[in-house]
Design a protein around this nucleic acid. Structure first.
Lengths: 198, 198, 198, 198
DNA sequence: TGCTAATCGAGACGGTACGTCTAGTCTTTTT
DNA sequence: AAAAAGACTAGACGTACCGTCTCGATTAGCA
């Protein structure tokens, strides 16, 4: 993650100083983790990063834009193709929840969702981002379809939505520690359904 | 809903003035609708309700507590027992989404979730409330189980969670206008599963 | 002058807290004396007074309004009627210059004049105040007129203006230490004129 | 005066570009006239002149230095020798006030005085400049002395100070439109005195 | 003719202050 | 005892300037 700002950074000419950008993103992450979303203010980030507020506002128009960049920096683990949809989806959910739980990305993403509730611009960006992620997840279903595991008329995006929604609410209600059994049950409900088989 | 405060209310002596409480809840709802979550402040509510801030703080310890009461006031429609799980769940989702869409309760609940991200107390209350709602929804699954529609080992709470999560994310990403077809598809995925039937 | 704020002051109900007002005026004076006009900011005053900025802005619409109140608090010595215009005016100038030199009022008034150069409202107030002072000074000339010391058609306000201008420029150019001889000479020029008497 | 910067000026090699200097002085004057002293900032001047801030700081160490050069560029009218002290001084005051009133030099000089109240360096320069002007004005009194109009022991600098002070305060309190009658009265007070002649 | 050195516009940098808004607490007055 | 009212400290908001810095370009004068 990197430490707080060390020495006074200077301008490096009429262009963005990447050191400052890094220091600000580091500070934003640190402030969010240490003080929580309620303690997350541009002032606090500027203080922590030893940066001027205008420097932050110059590059990030809003708190959410900053959060977004912080989130993007925290790269997600790749989900391997297990050759089996259930394991793919269980792996996906386990990875996502533990990534949110074990890195600061959970705090960041929660905050981003919260921020989207008061800022329409953020909301739009979040929706766009979400679509992209669903498309990515949808490929698991498409692979399964290709293998004949899944009915041909299934909407991969909708399934991805259903699965991701499960993750979102667990994030938003502090239930990131769900055990594998429960996750697998939920995934099975979606794959095999809950209806009684005759 | 009620109008803004009309005339200067006076104290009615050594007990809570129900007019004030109503005026405050009305004002809270109005402010939230008109100015959005970002414009929702205790100050703004007090101004709108012609109430003193301490009056609000006396009865509601936090912004979220106020939001909660506003939400509770907006009674939900009852979901009739259709005798069929799919229709029960589709009805449930349709009702919930349209209730959120057509009354101010959507704004209120969104705000509540957002608020929970910065206040642990609120988060706890929200989780508790959610559990209660899931238990309520779970009864649909139990009824279906009693009818033999659903496998005996299905966890009703988990299914309710899955279904409610779908509603939550649609609320949080401004997609309350999902059409019945999509909702029904999502419900079928959960009930019948997406797996290809041999 | 009074010390810095000691303990956190609280509100004393729905009315102005004179302790806060005093603390703010004390702090304003102290900041001006210690940091000079260039270091005189509302922020600095608030910090010094342990007051919130809004408390200052609530009661003083501008930096100048605050300076004005600080100036008014520093009561001027009364100028005794010596029964002789020359001594009256010399006394007036000596008193004024030493008052400006020995109390903080010199710094305050300089700042006020400076502030008036960038704020038309302040300028208007300053002109009004100046008129009042000139009227006051003008009475010395009127008394002398009554005694037959001064020609009947002399404009007392204009004389007061001339005399006060001398004081102003000495204030503005750091020449408050003018000795009595020079002051008396200047006064004599006005009273007896510089023309060679035949 | 010149217009705003026309085309992008470039460096003309390892020496000061007089076009830039001119553009900056023009811009400074224009900004001061249009936005007043409160809107007069180095940023604004640089923007207006299409100059880099460092270019300004390279040649003028402070806002006041810039103002000073602007003021110096605005040449004063010469005061003709009328052969009579009263007319000399009335002419001097009339010229000075109308010069301040009709050109931008009034704004500039006001700002310079204001600036001197927060910057000791400027104050010193201003005092020095003032002395020079007083010496110049003092020559009117010396000429009158030589003609036998004025008593031999009169201090010309002090008289100049008295007369200039009158002009300064009129500048600082927006009274540059004083009519000739009043000016002449003030001058007569100094020359003939206000004392009743027996 | 090619190199060096100073200057130019440009604009980012860490800061400070601006004036406004809200948070949550407090006290007096009125009912 | 509780309501209305509004003041209080505290601190975040987003913006404007401050004075400094580095860049890349430009060009005169020296080599």
């Amino acid at each position: 993650m990197g430490d707080d700002a060390d020495q006074a950074r200077k301008s490096i000419g009429a262009r963005r100083n990447p050191d400052s950008a890094d220091a600000i993103l580091d500070a934003a992450e640190a402030v969010l983790v240490e003080a929580g979303y309620s303690g997350f203010s541009i002032e606090a980030v500027a203080r922590r990063a030893r940066a001027g507020k205008p420097t932050i506002y110059r590059w990030w128009p809003s708190k959410a834009a900053l959060l977004f960049d912080v989130y993007q920096r925290l790269k997600r683990v790749e989900n391997p193709d297990t050759g089996n949809l259930e394991d793919d989806l269980v792996g996906f959910l386990k990875n996502l929840l533990s990534h949110w739980r074990e890195t600061s990305s959970g705090s960041v993403f929660r905050s981003l969702i919260a921020e989207a509730q008061s800022d329409a611009t953020v909301a739009a960006v979040l929706v766009e981002y979400t679509k992209g992620r669903h498309a990515h997840t949808g490929r698991m279903i498409e692979r399964a379809k290709a293998r004949g595991e899944v009915a041909a008329d299934v909407d991969p995006m909708l399934v991805a939505d259903l699965v991701a929604s499960f993750a979102w609410t667990h994030l938003l209600t502090n239930r990131l520690d769900e055990d594998e059994t429960t996750i697998r049950k939920a995934v099975r409900y979606v794959i095999q359904g809950i209806a009684h088989k005759r």
